[in-house]
Write a protein that binds this DNA or RNA. Structure first.
Lengths: 324, 324
DNA sequence: TTGTACGCGTTATCAT
DNA sequence: ATGATAACGCGTACAA
């Protein structure tokens, strides 16, 4: 049925070893033999079985990607770049959505290990540090520092938070709200909050903080959060949202309430997502493509057993546009 | 290093066959043996090697997904559901972005076949019919009817086009524009165009058609298209955009030009994407989750050699909101 | 330069 | 009920 290396060998009249050699271009082979083997392969439409190769080589050329939710634009864009660089380096990508569900994340890790993936990029973090350390597989994480031995890639969250808060203050906001996903998750994104708090406190600016609950990752969960904020604090004149999606909800609520942006309320988002409807939003742009690239390349280094940068913190950029 | 079935066998003092049997729960085994084997597995922290299993069983439990671009919200949401159902049925997902690049699509297909995936879901279609037919792998396509033998999943594009056009006419638009991606791609989405044309022509309504060029899939490509439309036809009072992203650009341009929506210009989108900034858009909603579910389930049927529905056309729904 | 033989980890086919 | 042994398809010492 399926044509194997053996069929090629028989057809050409050589051993499987020789065929394998030309396949991998190893050792010394006469050009004429190379030719004949190649022709036989083409003729029989031979395709090497990657499963068998992986089993034999103990290397699958597959990397696993675990993220909360591919339908979230930030992760969708990140994944696009991760796929790009993985492909470029000859790796395939196994996509895993954890949905921030601890059980599913755990199952996926076991599944990936069983599937002999060569490494994992973790963009979802619902388990304990102990769980991650016991993975025993080359690992790179995004936006989370799990342990000193696991390399992570992040952007400069503190600086992002500082830039956003400073801008709102400079634009003379008197009462600023900070909106975010759950702060209990031990993400580096929490540093945006830290920067916000330190800044407003040291400058003596009135402020409010609101966060979604633990499982709130879906777009619809943001609505009550935002509505509640404006209901309880109608005098808010500046909002720092820790994601562009959240900021978008704020803009929408302002429209609904008839608050002029940026005249009455100024809004800063976070992420710098490329999306329709976000072109006017002032935001902190993360270097998403670079994060994807380094996640892949550092993982490859890690897999190769080479020295890998443990802490990678990329610069962010303030995109000052029309909502401030 | 890695603990194998053999280690378990030795530890328990049985043959590998027996261990394999309890692993797969096949044949007759005494409960006491099951117990002892289980314990040994737990103790040694044994995990079966899926690669070896796949090689032996000739089944990998992996399905390949080829789409144009995961960062496009429609495909991101579709992928989310595909991953959900694949996981539910015990399958892993290999993610492939073709970027509408013929070469990459082709390479990915070869790669997937070499990786012994059990089947492929095709959401990208840049090759010729002949190429697809020669894939020789269980296949299900989205929004494209490639050949009578390849099952496809689509929503009712003709009806969607009809609903949108009828709505604009009913709302007394006098000059309607149709905006779309490239029509030369032989996608079923072309039926939206057909419905549009038939409707405006039979009703004698003035109309304009604009499409992006072949490679235009990126969000930024829409901008000149939309600007050109309004520049050349300032008297447009209705727009049917064949995607929500495109519609979003139209809304943006209207805002820029000071055209009131829906008072001066009415806009209908397509897809029904869940995204910030699209809550107010009147649109034709595709059943994305259902499309993902059926793509997976029909592929599984196909793989199992069972009777598979060849043509699946799902109903669409008009979401009449604030832009009409 | 090429071939033999074994290993990769698991399942399947026959035995017993 | 349990065990040898041969696949699965390929890579690679080691030998020649």
């Amino acid at each position: 049925m399926t044509v194997t290396i053996k069929d090629i060998a028989e057809k050409v009249g050589v051993s499987v070893t020789t065929v394998s050699r030309v396949l991998n271009n190893r050792g010394y082979l006469s050009d004429s033999l190379k030719q004949r083997v190649q022709e036989a392969m083409d003729e029989l439409n031979y395709q090497p079985n990657e499963l068998a190769r992986s089993l034999s080589r103990r290397k699958s050329h597959v990397i696993g990607l675990i993220i909360p939710d591919i339908s979230h634009p930030f992760f969708a864009q990140l994944t696009k770049h991760i796929e790009y660089y993985a492909y470029k380096h000859g790796y395939k990508l196994m996509l895993c959505n954890s949905l921030l569900h601890r059980q599913k994340e755990k199952e996926y890790i076991d599944l990936l290990r069983a599937s002999q993936v060569d490494g994992i990029i973790m963009g979802s973090h619902t388990m304990t540090v102990k769980d991650y350390v016991s993975i025993r597989l080359p690992l790179v994480t995004l936006d989370r520092q799990i342990s000193p031995s696991i390399p992570f890639i992040a952007s400069d969250n503190y600086r992002g938070g500082k830039l956003a808060t400073d801008l709102l203050i400079r634009k003379s906001c008197r009462k600023i709200a900070y909106l975010s996903g759950n702060l209990r998750l031990h993400l580096l994104a929490k540093q945006r909050y830290d920067a916000f708090m330190e800044t407003v406190q040291s400058r003596g600016v009135e402020h409010v903080v609101r966060e979604t609950d633990l499982n709130g990752f879906k777009y619809k969960d943001y609505e009550p959060l935002v509505q509640g904020l404006f209901a309880e604090h109608p005098d808010i004149d500046g909002v720092f949202a820790s994601s562009d999606m959240l900021a978008q909800q704020v803009l929408r609520e302002c429209r609904r309430l008839g608050r002029a942006v940026p005249e009455q309320v100024k809004v800063v988002g976070y992420d710098g997502i490329q999306a329709a409807g976000l072109d006017e939003l002032t935001t902190i742009q993360q270097p998403i493509k670079e994060m994807g690239r380094l996640a892949v390349e550092h993982l490859l280094l890690h897999m190769a057993g080479e020295e890998t940068p443990l802490e990678t913190i990329l610069p962010v950029r303030l995109l000052e546009r029309e909502t401030t």
